[in-house]
Design a protein around this nucleic acid. Structure first.
Lengths: 336, 336
DNA sequence: GAACACTGTCGAAGCGCTTCGACAGCCTCT
DNA sequence: AGAGGCTGTCGAAGCGCTTCGACAGTGTTC
């Protein structure tokens, strides 16, 4: 282990000078800087993270709490996590991976021990039990997702209400009057996950304004669950010509079932999905969809957090505008 | 910030005594222990991670390097990562999330700075450029995956060779003679990712032994790529009745295409997949499959690493035995 | 009952870094 | 020419913890 002191000795300067070369917090003459940098390279010096954290009371670590459940939108989570990790690195931070398992205790532990300088929470519930802790903490935090009360919190999310509205508009413009929504698994609604409810709000609100009939049904992923859900929908509303799907793992089963029943997409029925680009493009019918901008969400969250750590920027709610891409799964409603 | 010294004062003992209560490295009388524990609780004390790391030169952090690419088996990666994080916590470790982006530099940085006590690498290539660094490092490491040369390394992986063999055996037993393998994307083979090649080894070896004809075709995920691949396969080997699929995102397209062409599963053709349980169960036909035991791999990797950190256990290669579960997608070969 | 071994506690010395105040040397201004 | 202001460097004081050696006090052994 090479230490700062050894570098200093090798370069013929004091330890503090080396430290200032590293941090840039005081001006250093060009010649000295070069000498020090050379010594650092020659000795293969790496600053000790623990010592640094102790002396500066900053760890340069961001904690990321991911949900323990792997029952929904896993690829989105992963993409966000990776975006967080890479963006954090560009700002000089590393990322600590926490699972939701410990719940509020994890927040206390990380904040109390100074392990991380700030945290990013994913999968926030409308009335999350970690929120009071965050509001009272000296550690800044950013949420990915939107709780019921955002007072004193910084949040980043896709504007799911606008997303819902956008889907309905798209179908309405093409003449669809009866639209069914294949929602997330029932558990997701019971848990009051914000995005699911907000999407529904947007769907319903716009449907009302535009005079569409909307039927919402939660649905576990998978073929069997989708089969049951679809049968019920068509039983109740045989005239349904538009589908909005929010559950990734219901997309492909839905397409298979429709095909099987002789309903052509997009000639007979239109399907609009809310899902990552990749899913939309790889589906058996290229899907008209509103993309979930996972990378952008991760990136934004880190940048908000870094700003707060730097004393800049206050509490703010950033809602990313949804974008609908028209592909092969939607078209004009068939003539009655 | 409550410090050790404050706890000590509150409890009327010396700082070292509090430290020993916390670590259990020296015996402490029951009464003293209780007094100290009470003070800790009352003051809400959390040991400072940086100070701890500095004084003990152990950070109690494990670094996990995940691949940057999100082009393959994302749910598997995520499941492993979560299993690593939760298992690590049960051993008192936190997990630092590194993306492959930095490559070997990340290894140097983490090892050099003492940020982590050890590391777990996922998505190891057969001849990974990080391996020499790991062999020379004082930090223990565990690989999830198997490089060409495992000398001096500890590895955990599914026995993909046995997995390939198992798939072939299953089809052979049911009378299939012409089997096609839908492999991972070409890029995966070009990158010489171990598991893909080892699966192929297993498939080919066993097929030769059992006298099956085997046709292997890499395939990008998605419907369009699968359509092209399938057409080529059936063109070249019209008598194909068995499919082994290794690429998750080709599974559903394959089923859709077969259905579309009037080939019934499992009456006309049998499909065996290598994929996580969830995919197999949720597919439009419940798939006969060899599960990828993501959780178990993550858990094992942590346990190996913790053992090495504790000075126990040496270099070892753990290959988990594959298990094939028969579901609805495979049956006897049709009579010619 | 002297010699010895435990047990439980303490004090002090760092771990490697950051950062504050000090200050030498030089430049600029009047 | 002296006062004042910069610039670049240094020394020293911690940051909060672990851990080593020391040592009272008690129990055990012949």
């Amino acid at each position: 282990m090479v230490t700062l002191a050894e570098v200093a000795q090798h370069a013929g300067v004091s330890a503090s000078t080396v430290s200032y070369v590293l941090s840039g917090k005081r001006s250093i003459s060009a010649t000295t800087r070069q000498r020090v940098e050379r010594s650092i390279r020659e000795l293969g010096y790496h600053p000790n993270a623990g010592a640094r954290a102790l002396a500066s009371s900053r760890s340069n670590i961001i904690a990321l709490m991911v949900p323990l459940r792997t029952d929904m939108y896993v690829p989105v989570m992963m993409e966000i996590a990776i975006a967080v990790a890479t963006t954090a690195r560009t700002h000089g931070y590393d990322v600590l991976l926490l699972t939701g398992e410990e719940g509020p205790d994890a927040v206390r532990r990380v904040a109390g021990s100074g392990l991380a300088d700030g945290m990013i929470l994913m999968d926030v519930e409308l009335d999350d039990e970690r929120l009071p802790l965050l509001r009272g903490a000296r550690q800044p935090a950013v949420l990915i997702g939107l709780p019921a009360d955002t007072e004193g919190l910084t949040c980043v999310d896709l504007d799911f209400k606008a997303t819902g509205a956008l889907c309905v508009e798209h179908l309405a413009e093409r003449g669809h009057r009866d639209v069914a929504v294949i929602g997330e698994a029932p558990a997701v609604y019971e848990r009051h996950t914000g995005f699911a409810e907000r999407t529904l709000d947007g769907l319903r609100g716009r449907a009302r304004e535009l005079g569409l009939r909307l039927l919402h049904r939660p649905c576990e992923g998978g073929y069997d669950a989708m089969a049951v859900t679809l049968a019920r929908i068509l039983d109740e509303r045989p005239g349904t010509t538009g589908f909005v799907v929010q559950n990734e793992s219901a997309v492909e089963p839905l397409l298979a079932l429709l095909r099987q029943q002789g309903r052509a997409v997009p000639e007979d029925v239109s399907v609009v999905a809310v899902c990552p680009e990749q899913v939309a493009v790889q589906a058996s019918v290229r899907l008209t969809s509103v993309a979930i901008p996972a990378q952008e969400m991760g990136r934004h969250a880190v940048e908000q957090l870094v700003a707060k750590l730097g004393g800049r920027g206050g509490d703010e709610v950033v809602l990313l505008a949804p974008e609908l891409t028209v592909r092969a799964s939607s078209g004009p409603a068939p003539l009655p």
